[in-house]
Amino acid sequence: MLLNLNRLGWWKLVLFGITVLTTAFLLLPILFIAALSFGSSQWLIFPPPSWTLRWYQELFADPRWLASAWTSFQIAIIVTVLSVLLGLATSFGLTRGRFAFREGLKALFLTPMILPVVVLAVALYAFFLKIGLNGTLTGFVISHLVLALPFSILSIGNALEGFDKSIEDAAVLCGASPLEAKVRVTLPAISHGIFSAAIFSFLTSWDEVVVAIFMSSPTLQTLPVKVWATLRQDLTPVVAAASTLLILLTVLLMVLVAVVRKGLKS
């Protein structure tokens, strides 16, 4: 009844009405920003008096925007690679292992995900000040890795749990060494988990603001920090241009994910 579309009667209209409004609420700010980034008004008047590419020109003319984007990209790539590698080793250990404290260890590995980021940010800031890692690429990578690793362990761990170990055993009996069996059989079979781990790790680092605000120095800042710093001064449309590019990136990533998922399934 209540879960049957045809029996809902006028309730259906209410439910769908709320859904349409909510969807619009979720979508509108994103479309709005994209539209504003092409508007000519310095004060972000909507609808804009005329259309222009001026804010994009300003964005690309400023080397600090490009530099921060490049820094973000470098950090995100390194974090992705390390997070996937560590996630693989850890997931194999946690899924296959039968040692004491396994559950406790699992919980510890996932805590950075549930802890308020600001606590970690402040703690790492103090710690890095002492050991001289503040404002360095290494510092960024380490702190983002701590944040990304739980997602990686979760995605790969789930995939590995759904993978029958007998298949790997079969490969070993076929003559593949244990390592070869993992590389040639297990990894391809859990590739969807590895892929999710990579996407989540990349996004975690690429979008991360809070830790980055504390970690950055005048010479080394990530794109989110640059956006943050700009926003604290004024609401310039250049940020709208930068945001639109970030939204575009998100859409591209979603398409990539959809395509890869489809490819992995068939």
Partner: peptide, 10 residues
Amino acid sequence: WTNLLARTYA
């Protein structure tokens, strides 16, 4: 998935 700052800015 859209950048948090972009959404807040909006």
